[in-house]
């Protein structure tokens, strides 16, 4: 968008969503292994796991697709 070699906004979004996906998926798996004493409503659906996975996949798609190409 700003000349050769510059990073796209979609790359930044991909990087952040990937990191968030890893963190939220990890938190969900930890909660699965060690259930909290006062779980949220619908905790049995393990929203952190599937939402974390959605973020991770979405993030990786953007991250890889818009990763700056080497010259």
């Amino acid at each position: 968008m700003h000349g050769k070699g510059s990073l796209s906004i979609w790359f930044f979004i991909g990087a952040l969503l990937t990191a968030y996906g890893v963190l939220i998926l990890g938190a969900g798996l930890y909660e699965l292994a060690s259930p909290p004493p006062f779980p949220a409503v619908l905790a049995n659906l393990h929203a952190s796991i599937w939402w974390g996975a959605v973020l991770l996949i979405l993030g990786l798609i953007y991250f890889i697709r818009f990763y700056p190409k080497r010259k």
Binding site: L23, I24, A27, E31, P39, A40, V41, L42, A43, A47
Partner: peptide
């Protein structure tokens, strides 16, 4: 948010 979100999702 507090009703449905556990650690991680709450931060998001």
């Amino acid at each position: 948010l507090a009703r449905y979100c556990g650690p991680g999702l709450l931060g998001l």
